[in-house]
Design a protein around this nucleic acid. Structure first.
Lengths: 232, 232
DNA sequence: GTGCATGATTTTGGACGCAATAAAAATAGG
DNA sequence: CCTATTTTTATTGCGTCCAAAATCATGCAC
């Protein structure tokens, strides 16, 4: 019996938190992020309820949340499925992300503390070291942390939340798509410039650079993951 | 009896749509937008259920959706209340909106059809006419439509949706805050420039202008509606 | 063999009920 | 009379139930 004294089928660890639906939403997001739930895949309420060991009410609330975030699509009387990302939609999402990062660049120049800039600079150095030793996996791992740090350095919680929502679905694409040597070199150079512009507090230029930087990765991702490279 | 053959207390018109929770969410948004539900105000599930003539399940799903959109705030075991906008939060939201409009400006230069630009130009002429005859109410009504049109002209549905979400709470502030003559003049001038830059397809400059334009309205709004000009 | 109608099964959408938490009220103690 | 504690009440969170819709399966005619 679980904490409510009901249901006995806790198959996948027990859930413990303020809101069940909140925890369930996190888990679903993680299933989607990790690819365990694939685009186009249908969501079976009862099956997932059994997996998590909960009833349908919090599951359905979580589904509504994910749908609002755009990760699930609701089909009237036919449940929900994982949102697929078509070529066009991926393009749209990338432009929104580019916009968020551009805004973050501008705001970070205005609001970031010296300490935050130092931290970003340190990570950038670290990343450039991985570049020198051709450690592509290491490079993109740090790359992601730098982008996140810049957005956080904007000191705008809504922007940070928005960034999280929009990157969750395409993060793995963005940081796994194989780049050519030229593209990789360019990314490294641009990151060097980012730090310089942050230090110079040059809002306008960093804003433009961030947008261009994000856009540069667009063709790579579109080529690699058009329609999430699968059809339902 | 309603369509489910249950509950008889349809006090506020019958609801008819694919999803009840969707209709309920729309109604709640409207209640918030119109100010019938005020910031800080507590949401009583049962009371609203009775008003809409529905059960708690779709109401709760709608509440989760509004919370995800940021219009409601959930309090564990104590329901929800309408999100209040503090000075700092208003500043954050305005910067996000500025970012969205800047992105829209850039994309509109790339993607807008000549027809769309003509429509925006026509609305701008109309608005400048209201400016000449000092019709402030008319000015801001058209102003809102122009901003919307530019965002739509970006041809990015996610950006458009994001814009709707972020403006719903502050729209009335943005377009009702009294401007000084100088500020009003500046807004008019900037709108003239927007059309010129759209025609010239000057992405970068329009992007910057949109951000600056949105930011210019920040002090006005902050001064007028600090913490939604009410406490508790 | 294919196309359509009809019935069985699955799954969804929404209503409802129970237990737990928290706010409110009532009581006791200082 | 004011504060601390208990009791009551209100309301929330979640589990469950029922009916409508959709899907699947079967059978029949063409």
């Amino acid at each position: 019996m679980n904490r409510m004294g009901m249901m006995t089928g806790n198959t996948e660890v027990g859930i413990q938190r303020r809101y069940l639906h909140d925890e369930v939403a996190d888990r679903l997001r993680e299933l989607i992020r990790s690819g365990q739930l694939k685009p186009h895949q249908h969501i079976n309420e009862l099956e997932l309820c059994a997996r998590f060991g909960i009833s349908r009410t919090p599951m359905r609330e979580a589904i509504k949340i994910l749908a609002t975030e755009g990760l699930l699509e609701l089909l009237p009387n036919r449940g929900a499925h994982v949102t697929s990302v078509s070529q066009d939609e991926l393009d749209e999402i990338m432009e929104v992300i580019a916009g968020i990062e551009a805004t973050a660049g501008d705001l970070a120049c205005r609001n970031a503390s010296e300490g935050e800039i130092d931290a970003i600079a340190a990570m950038t150095d670290e990343m450039l070291a991985t570049f020198d030793r051709r450690d592509e996996a290491g490079f993109f791992a740090i790359n992601w942390r730098i982008h996140e740090a810049i957005v956080r350095a904007a000191h705008n919680s809504r922007l940070t939340a928005l960034y999280a929502t929009f990157t969750v679905r395409i993060q793995h694409m963005r940081y796994s798509a194989g780049r050519t040597s030229t593209q990789w070199q360019r990314a490294a150079d641009e990151h060097r410039r980012m730090v310089a512009l942050l230090r110079a507090r040059d809002c306008e230029t960093l804003c433009r650079l961030m947008r261009d930087h994000a856009r540069a990765s667009k063709p790579v991702i579109l080529a690699t993951y058009g329609d999430e490279h699968e059809r339902g």
